[in-house]
């Protein structure tokens, strides 16, 4: 059984008088443990697709099965709970909360899960150590480099042991060397912990390291290829 399955997903936006059809019928499947790069020209709908996969947005039509279950017609609090439990987001701009320390940022998903404060700290600490940020737990994002912030963000995405990690251009704001370090972290997490990962990227060198690549074009998934 696939971890997630999209069937003929359509999504359009109304911009004033014009309707922009961004996703025109995307069908797409991800199995547990896979690591897939999503590529495509700017504006091809990669982020839109990822938002739908991550339950931040809803498709206009089409079916979305997560772990075999239909996800249409869920309430806001059910969707929030799925985001909290099953999805880990990593953003291009890191999106850490500036007023909180690294540790507190990592705790956030646990806060919304209602885990007692005493249990949050050790869980967050463990995952921070896993991404190599154990010694920076008390620092605020401002005091960290871009690469370090992205590591904290990855820790935050992983702390709730989600089914799938969604990364929208996670190396886009980093230089090549640091970007590669982050990519190495994703690869390591995928190979050692079998964390299912979707990475949107414009960088062919990043995509080439992923076992699978999906191309988006004109609102469709143009092709799925296996890397050698």
């Amino acid at each position: 059984m696939s971890l997630l399955k999209l069937e003929k997903i359509k999504k359009s936006f109304t911009l004033g008088p014009v309707q922009v059809h961004v996703l025109k019928g995307v069908s797409f499947e991800v199995h547990a443990g896979e690591m897939i790069a999503i590529m495509g020209t700017s504006g091809s709908g990669k982020s839109t697709l990822m938002n739908i996969i991550g339950f931040l947005d809803q498709p206009d039509s089409g079916r979305y099965l997560l772990e075999g279950k239909e996800t249409a017609r869920l309430s806001d609090s059910e969707l929030s709970s799925i985001r909290n439990q099953k999805i880990g987001f990593v953003f291009q701009q890191f999106n850490l909360l500036g007023k909180l320390t690294a540790l507190e940022n990592v705790c956030l998903p646990l806060v919304y899960r209602g885990i007692p404060e005493k249990e949050q700290k050790p869980m967050a600490m463990e995952i921070l150590e896993k991404v190599g940020m154990g010694d920076r737990a008390g620092h605020r994002p401002m005091e960290l480099s871009g690469g370090q912030q992205q590591r904290v963000a990855i820790a935050r995405a992983l702390v709730g042991t989600p089914s799938i990690l969604l990364a929208d251009e996670p190396t886009g704001a980093l230089d090549t060397r640091v970007g590669q370090e982050i990519m190495d972290l994703f690869l390591e997490l995928n190979s050692t912990q079998k964390i299912t990962t979707l990475i949107i990227t414009h960088d062919p060198r990043i995509a080439a390291q992923c076992p699978g690549t999906v191309r988006m074009q004109d609102g469709y998934v143009a092709g799925t290829e296996e890397s050698p």
Partner: peptide, 16 residues
């Protein structure tokens, strides 16, 4: 707003 968006992405309900 951005903070609110981030919190929502991490699983905060409207109620939270």
């Amino acid at each position: 707003k951005r903070e609110i968006g981030i919190r929502r992405a991490l699983g905060a309900r409207k109620k939270d």
